[in-house]
């Protein structure tokens, strides 16, 4: 009884906080690439062709839309000690290795959360991580293991690979807080519920590295931040 009471009070406070219009704004914008859009480079499939060729494979390391919008850019607020922790969702986020390709190519998951790695290809995959802070993983995922949950404790930027299918490449961002997002195929992004203040906005792309921009978030409403990566040398 007592426990439920406490929980109820906590829930009530949470509800109140949610109901009261919080002092928070959103950072919205679009990331563009200043250089020429590279032509999509097809990846030759050399192994398990029957399964892997179910989808077309192109190099995803730099995907630029017709209007120069840049996909798969991780945009986040740098040095944000007051940022809330990213909530761990009830259903774990998934990383699918469908047709020998990581879906999605870049994914953000909360620190301390679990990632379900799926293999519905019916062949052997092998998830191999190259982390900075978390322990490295080199785990085989044979046909009979369709789902493999793996927990990531520390904030990190992790390169994903598969030694069986050497072309497979993906990135996992283990976020320390909620003010992280990844740009869509058209380059647009939105970081929601940012407490008002002046911040440094960082944006990272796997082949272009990290850039920063300044942004001031108001007590409510959207602040626009259009970001650009200079052309690769």
């Amino acid at each position: 009884m007592k426990r439920i009471g406490t929980l109820g009070i906590v829930a009530l406070i949470c509800a109140c906080l949610a109901a009261v219009p919080a002092l928070a704004g959103n950072v919205v914008g679009k990331v563009t690439y200043a250089g020429a859009a590279p032509a999509p480079k097809p990846i030759p499939i050399t192994k398990d062709k029957e399964v892997c060729s179910r989808e077309p494979h192109v190099d995803e390391s730099l995907v630029v839309a017709a209007d120069k919008g840049l996909a798969n850019v991780v945009v986040y607020i740098k040095d944000a000690p007051n940022a809330p922790k990213m909530a761990i969702p009830a259903k774990a986020p998934e990383l699918d290795q469908r047709s020998c390709k990581f879906h999605p190519h870049v994914q953000i998951i909360p620190a301390g959360g679990t990632l379900d790695i799926l293999n519905n290809d019916g062949i052997l995959h092998n998830i191999h991580t190259y982390p900075k802070n978390n322990p490295p993983i080199n785990q085989a995922q044979p046909k009979f293991k369709t789902k493999m949950p793996i927990k990531f404790d520390k904030p990190d930027t992790i390169k994903l690979a598969c030694d069986v299918h050497t072309w497979m490449s993906g990135w996992l961002i283990v976020a320390p807080n909620a003010w992280y997002t990844v740009s869509g195929p058209d380059g647009t992004f939105k970081i929601e519920n940012v407490a008002p203040g002046a911040y440094t906005l960082s944006y990272w792309q796997e082949t272009l590295g990290t850039q920063t921009a300044q942004v001031t978030v108001a007590a409510s409403g959207d602040v626009k931040a259009d970001l650009t990566f200079p052309a690769k040398k």
Binding site: T46, D48, L124, P142, D163, V164
Partner: peptide, 24 residues
Amino acid sequence: STDYFNCFSCHQQGARKPEGDPSG
């Protein structure tokens, strides 16, 4: 076999070579 550990996806077995580039 391929239904289980699929060892020969990467390992050679005498004259039977795996698919793909030898670097893998």
